[in-house]
Amino acid sequence: MSLKPDLSVTIRGITFKNPVTVASGTFGNTDEFEPYVNFSRLGAFVTKTITLRPRVGNPMPRIVETPSGMLNAIGLENKGLEDYVENKIPYLAKFNTRLITSIASSNTQEFLDMVKVLDRQAAISAIELNLSCPNIRDQGIRFAQHAQEVGDIVKAVRGATAKLIFTKLSPEMANFMDIAEISVKSGTDALSVINTIKGMSVDIHRRVPRISNVTGGLSGPAIRPIALRYVYEVKRNLDIPVIGMGGISTWQDAMEFIITGAHMVATGTSNFVNPRASLDVLEGIERYLTEKKIESIQSIRGTLKDAYGKKEKSSCSPS
């Protein structure tokens, strides 16, 4: 009989029972997926981005299907921090999984105000800073473009909480690697790589954009190779845990990210097509490790070789 592989991952001393989580905004905020997924089996549950005050979001149409993916411009519709703390956390706290709360804001002070409230919530293990939602046209939410600005936000938040901080980045950010580096220097515990990439689709009969915001964030298998490349870039240059996401639909997809160096992996838009995608990925990873007699997820993480099968030189230390 083969032993079960150790799937646990540790980020700054906090242990997650397995490396599988969900991407913010693709798994609802409470019970949307309860009929299909036992949340207690997930490594972590990441909720849809909340803001300090409620936001109504963008007008319809908000989504459009594209080849092997979709564009969305929901506009961060959410009921705000107070509703989240009062109504969402008590429900989510019932499950034996780690809760990660995704937040967005317009300025450092508001980020701080939110983090101070969330810091008092024992049920929350990590706060994910969504600094890269591409779908906001008003001035309400900052799409962080400048490394200095990102550094300031991360540093301020770092000073306000001992909980884990994940910083979510998008290839839309100019100087992606500079921003990744300053996030690390400012004290983020991990990077969530990647957010969606801006795209567009036109109805040629009516000659109108297919979503009201004109552009939207592209997600799904179409962006997976791009996401993987960014995980690779980060792991090659920085010593920081990465939550890999972007088009992950199957366990094979997830293993590409883990071998490239990701600590955790998130299913995103694939949850919409297969509500059980996260658990399918988890079960597949476990099977893969068992069949290959690999004792732990940690021992395969970041073991990418060069194209000739030799060990790749990398600055990232095995952790």
């Binding site: 609802g28 949307e32 997926f33 319809m60 908000r62 989504i63 969305n72 929901i74 519709e77 919409f272």
Partner: peptide
Amino acid sequence: MGACLGCV
């Protein structure tokens, strides 16, 4: 399932 908020 009410998660993506794309059909409001």
